[in-house]
Computed example of a mutant assay.
Amino acid sequence: MNNFTVIKYNPNYFDVWNNFIQNSKNATFLFYRNFMEYHADRFSDFSLMVFKKNKLVALLPANRNSKTVYSHQGLTYGGLILKNDVKFNEVLEMFSSLLSFLNSENISHLEIKLMPAMYCNLPNDELSYLLFLLQAELIKKDNLSVVNQRYKLAISNNRLEGVKRGVKHNLKVEESKSFDEFWNTILIPNLNKKHGVKPVHSLSEIKQLHENFPDNIKQYNVYHEGAIVAGTTMFITKNVAHCQYISGNQDKNQLGSLDFLFEKLINEFFADKLFFDFGSSNENHGRTINRGLQFWKEGFGARTVVQEFFSVKTDNYKLLNSVMK
């Protein structure tokens, strides 16, 4: 398996990388360099590019920590980014070459967070199968709550009561061009009070990312008598509308503000998407679930999609040598 050459990404390939992302079968805007590099100071980038006869055929957005390379820890999902017409035997050979390269670089393990199928334009399970062949260790599973927009379940009575409260209080949902109001008034104070943490993105980072990707990152707020009472920051891809941040003020249950917001988002603002992804309700590294949060999401008809995380030894690349008969 020596048909492929693997190199580390460097800024000279900025446009080449982005052009490949634009024409791949399983990439979203998160993999563009002008998204990935917003947190370049937090991660030691170790992204890889795979070539066949000087033609770019695959990418691995990644970072390195000691002897482990991760399919990038700053991104929600990852793995091999592939062109539309790639076939299984090619993926097998290029991934073997990639692991061999990592092994030669004194990397002992590669950790991969697989991309849920709903984010892909074409079937994309080659890597999942290869990880099985490579005897990869399953290290985590997340339970994502997802609404299939083509086969929607009825909203629960609990959530309908919240929607009715929103109508009664004359709530308004608006797309906002500014993130400051929601982040400074509701999101940041709530996260600090309830969990003692800050958002993964700073306000300045989310504003910069919105400037870079105005069609993919949007803010939706709920107003009561002209004052903001709830909101969500959305990450939007071709197939999926994903809630990156959700929060409401102390009156959210009385006003029904979050129920009102998400009924509108699912059935009006993002009715054209294939999926509406509430994200994970997991805690404790995927081993427990926030019961109340899960119950709330499922009230909108969301059901479970699993995201898997694996660790594979790089010197196991030899196990792929005799797969194809």
Rank of each mutant, 00 (worst) to 15 (best):
D277Y: 08
F276G: 02
R287Y: 09
M115S: 14
N2R: 14
N316D: 09
N23A: 13
I236K: 08
S202K: 15
F310E: 08
P123H: 05
F235R: 05
M49V: 12
K113R: 14
N34D: 14
N253Y: 12
Y70N: 08
N2A: 10
S104A: 05
D125N: 12
K264D: 04
Y245T: 08
N26V: 08
L80S: 09
N253G: 02
D315G: 01
T232H: 08
A271R: 12
S257Y: 07
K87C: 00
Y245I: 00
K218N: 12
S71Q: 13
N65E: 15
E93M: 10
N316Q: 05
E175V: 01
F260Y: 11
N26P: 08
Q73W: 04
Q294A: 12
N2D: 14
T76D: 13
N10S: 15
V323G: 04
K168W: 01
Y151E: 12
R150F: 01
A136S: 11
N290G: 07
H39K: 15
A40V: 03
A40C: 10
L131I: 03
L258P: 06
L255W: 00
T28R: 06
L160C: 00
F213D: 11
S100M: 04
L171H: 05
S128N: 11
P214I: 08
L127F: 00
F275E: 02
F132C: 09
P199V: 01
R33K: 15
S145P: 04
N184M: 11
N18C: 10
L153V: 08
L261P: 06
S156Q: 11
D125R: 12
L99S: 02
L320Q: 07
F29Y: 11
N192R: 10
E263W: 12
I289W: 02
G166H: 01
K87V: 13
W17I: 07
S156L: 09
A227G: 05
Y13M: 03
F46N: 01
L122H: 14
T76M: 12
K164L: 07
N253E: 11
T68L: 09
N157H: 12
D315N: 15
V86P: 03
I236C: 05
M324D: 13
V86R: 06
S311C: 03
C243N: 13
A227K: 15
